[in-house]
Amino acid sequence: MESPLATHVAFHLGPVPITTPVLTSWAIMLLLAGGGWLLTRRLVLRPGNTQAALELVVDTLERQIRDTMRTEPTPYLPLVGTLFLYIFVANWSSLVPGVEPPTGAIETDAALALIVFAAAIAFGIRVRGLGGYLRSFARPSIIMVPLNLLENITRTFSLVVRLFGNVMSGIFVIGIVLSLVGLLVPVPLMALELLTGAVQAYIFTVLAMVFIGGGIEDEAPHVAQEESNS
């Protein structure tokens, strides 16, 4: 019997197996990129309802980044915004019959966590320099270096496990209930799963911001001070 945690290979592209989470991700990419292109084709200074909603989403993301990271949100918006939108749409893709959310596959969650891990390092080095970033591991004292290194790894794992566990557990619970009760009864659970998906998207994004912000925290108060002065 195949493990319920195993990913289903849809087809092979040469030696590369293309799994359903990858296919779903491509669909989500097409949906987000195409939708973004369609919605931003005719942006005007006097926005309509759709453009106003779009601007509200982007502005809310920026405000969230500014509040969480205490810094100018522009460099972090593409990463943070994409993480939130992708995880949100991926979690809610379970609404489409026959589609399993790609975030229910641990490879997707691991990929997201790896990107956050790499981004925290990259932004930390870019903002503080390589020396400054490395010195941040020795704070508050040199004996904290092993713990800080371990923390960087464990928190990445925690990102993976948190998102994977929540989404996967939801899928399992709905599957089990569906197999036991049938129609209609799983609907409240599906609604709860939607709420859980939205909350998990928000939590993952906020934690990503916290991790990246921790890598640049020496600069953050300075930028925040400048903003408060302006």
């Binding site: 990913t7 590369v16 197996p17 293309i18 799994t19 989470p21 990858v22 991700s25 491509w26 989500i28 990419m29 987000l32 990129a33 973004g36 292109w37 919605l39 931003t40 779009l54 982007v58 918006l77 593409p78 990463l79 915004g81 994409t82 993480l83 939108l85 992708y86 790609p102 596959a105 490879e107 997707t108 691991a110 990929a111 997201l112 790896l114 990107i115």
Partner: peptide, 21 residues
């Protein structure tokens, strides 16, 4: 899948940056 999903998210970051944000 891990690699493809990583690439997918990175590509999506670029796409959304270019077409949305």
């Amino acid at each position: 899948t891990l690699g493809l999903q990583t690439v997918n998210v990175l590509v999506l970051i670029w796409l959304l940056q270019h077409f949305l944000f």
